[in-house]
Amino acid sequence: MLKVSSLSKVYKRTTAVDDVNFDVSKGEIAVLVGPNGAGKSTTIKSIVGLLRFNGEVTIGSYDNKSIEAKKLLSYVPEIPALFPLLTVREHVEYMSLAYGKSVNKEKIETLLKRFDLVDKQDKLGDELSKGMMQKVSICSAVIVNPEVIVFDEPMMGLDPKAIKEIKKLIIELKEANKVVLLSTHMIEMIEDLWDRVIIMKEGKVIDNVTRLETNHRALEEFFFEITGDTDE
């Protein structure tokens, strides 16, 4: 469903991502992990079409830059960016309409309730804390009912309740047969979530395995073994 082939991204003279390849199937939660500067965010931004890159990214059978592919995909950025003069509720409504869907008030209400945003729904974008902005970004991405959802460091800045809620949400998306790709360096947070791990280091994928292929090993232990970044 999500296929990344020979993805490379060069910033001036620095190669941020070098020949990255991986697939994520329907109903699969893939986690993109790696140390800081490994190229996770650049890979994610290329997949959602925010950056110029070399290589090919397909969503379903469509090129990621096509309108058809964009209809299937939604994205939660690492640094939430809200419109300063739109309210919380309007952000969610805006995304619905931008994806060609009518505003489903009931669905929006449920989402806002789920992320404790009901009493904040009339607050403007620039009146929110970073954590709340992140929650709004998550609600805005989920409201469009995407087939592929890409989270870039989704748990950053969230309170424990919201982290619990987002984990539950990710499981629900998997059960609904969606493709979930999430990047993080907080490995302990995703220990019970992942089906596939893609480990990146210095812009390259150094391992890409399913949980089954690791014999259900603890992700943290497996990660340090592969990256060689142990504290011994």
Binding site: L85, E90, L97, A98, K101
Partner: peptide, 20 residues
């Protein structure tokens, strides 16, 4: 907010303008 796809941008900008 109203209008589907890119049409919503105009209504968003109008709302922002009236609030600023």
């Amino acid at each position: 907010l109203e209008g589907l796809y890119a049409k919503v941008i105009f209504h968003k900008q109008m709302t922002e303008l009236r609030r600023s």
